[in-house]
Computed example of a mutant assay.
Amino acid sequence: MTQEVRAVVAPGKNEPVRVETIVVPDPGPGEAVVDIKACGVCHTDLHYKQGGINDEFPFLLGHEASGVVESVGEGVTEVAPGDVVILNWRAVCGRCRACERGRPWYCFDTHNARQPMTLTDGTPLSPALGIGAFAEKTLVAAGQCTKVDPAVDPAVAGLLGCGVMAGIGAAINTGQVGRGDSVAVIGCGGVGDAAVAGARLAGAARIIAVDVDPRKLETARTFGATHTVDATATDPVEAIREATGGFGADVVIEAVGRPETYEQAFYARDLAGTVVLVGVPTPDMKLQLPLLDVFGRGGALKSSWYGDCLPSRDFPMLIDLHQQGRLDLASFVTERIGLDDVEAAFDRMHRGDVLRSVIVL
């Protein structure tokens, strides 16, 4: 039978979010209902609210979540009721050309639950990134659930569902940072700091953090940055070159998603170096670079989709590293809030006052 639960809904473009009662159906074939325990407040949720993703309002916000599987539908074998899971927004199909070539992290046919969740009047909701986890319970495809150690703090675990995984994966999976490499990270919010942490995990010798906010630069140091650059006072390209013997960094990770910072990343890398774009641009943004420079500098220009992660492989591994004391995921959690506090959390995030606000249920 269907259930009615409390959830955070964005009713229209730039309108304040509201806590509403929503209807969650029983799971159908291949689906699961998850009892949400914690969900991070991510910039992507704010983009949904602002109409920056699409205009399919009303949105059921939230996607960076962990919880406990309550029930599963027919044919589900990946998880069972009682499993502690992290939710992901790229459930791998196993059948597309990327999956069949052994590259499931590029899956071109990822999927979500088929049934809609609705308002009590029957209005269908568009769940953020196919999850919708600013809610007491949500309906997802079973493949969006990745089982992890139940001993982990839910507020910590959920952050792997989006921002932290995107940043760590941008360094390790997409950028393929190696031992002794130099790495620059432009933009030190949650994703950028996770990229710093990922570069440190990979054994980078120099990690240069770039931002316009001194508070963020100080936080980046706690995650492993060896150098910091205040972009309001110094040319980031020249500062990165100076910190790398005049050459530029082996890997530059752009975690802002703007043409001007991407251009900085392009020119701040060494010859044959790698640029990784993990910051999300808006549809109106355009980039111009001299084609001769693209050719002449060599190397690779990459975009990082979800940190090119494979949730079934990467989520448990990173939880294990956290529990071993080798990856401090808890430091990403700035505050713990309730469902009624989301609008204020968006304001704090916009001002740069928090790394992550996490809703705890």
Score class of each variant (00 low, 15 high):
residue 9 V to H: 05
residue 12 G to K: 13
residue 12 G to C: 08
residue 14 N to E: 14
residue 16 P to K: 12
residue 21 T to Q: 12
residue 25 P to Q: 15
residue 29 P to A: 15
residue 31 E to L: 09
residue 32 A to M: 08
residue 34 V to I: 15
residue 36 I to L: 14
residue 37 K to A: 11
residue 37 K to D: 08
residue 37 K to I: 00
residue 39 C to T: 12
residue 39 C to D: 05
residue 41 V to R: 03
residue 41 V to A: 03
residue 46 L to A: 13
residue 48 Y to E: 06
residue 49 K to G: 02
residue 52 G to F: 09
residue 53 I to K: 12
residue 55 D to S: 15
residue 55 D to C: 05
residue 56 E to G: 13
residue 60 L to P: 03
residue 61 L to K: 00
residue 63 H to E: 04
residue 63 H to S: 05
residue 63 H to M: 09
residue 66 S to T: 02
residue 68 V to R: 10
residue 75 G to D: 03
residue 76 V to I: 07
residue 83 D to L: 06
residue 83 D to N: 11
residue 84 V to F: 15
residue 84 V to N: 01
residue 85 V to H: 04
residue 88 N to E: 02
residue 92 V to Y: 01
residue 92 V to S: 00
residue 94 G to V: 06
residue 97 R to G: 07
residue 97 R to V: 15
residue 98 A to L: 00
residue 101 R to C: 12
residue 102 G to S: 06
residue 102 G to A: 07
residue 104 P to A: 05
residue 104 P to K: 05
residue 104 P to Q: 03
residue 105 W to A: 14
residue 107 C to W: 01
residue 110 T to S: 09
residue 111 H to T: 05
residue 112 N to A: 15
residue 115 Q to W: 06
residue 117 M to R: 03
residue 118 T to L: 10
residue 118 T to Y: 13
residue 122 G to C: 13
residue 124 P to F: 10
